[in-house]
Amino acid sequence: MKVKFFAQIRELTGTASVEMAVPENATVEGVRQALMARGPSWQEALSVNVLCACNQTLCDGATTVSEQDEVAFFPPVTGG
């Protein structure tokens, strides 16, 4: 599955996207937890103030995801 990061989260993780394998019936929250286990900077990036999207639509942590989905994590938006 492709996971994308934007803004502060992209800078803290040091990457704009990663490919990762996900188990069956995985959730967006499960993906977030797995990423946070990668190290302190991942933990810092993804622990608070994080919005998530699945296939480019805002979603919540309970959303189930599979290999074909594109998940993204980003901070609250500040455009305009």
């Binding site: 934007f6 803004a7 502060q8 999207a53 980003f74 901070p75 938006v77 500040t78 455009g79 305009g80």
Partner: peptide, 18 residues
């Protein structure tokens, strides 16, 4: 300003802040 994924960084004294 609430729902469109765009993020703003401001520059001051040569360094950026989200």
């Amino acid at each position: 300003k609430q729902s469109v994924p765009i993020w703003k960084k401001e520059w001051a004294d040569g360094s950026p802040t989200w």
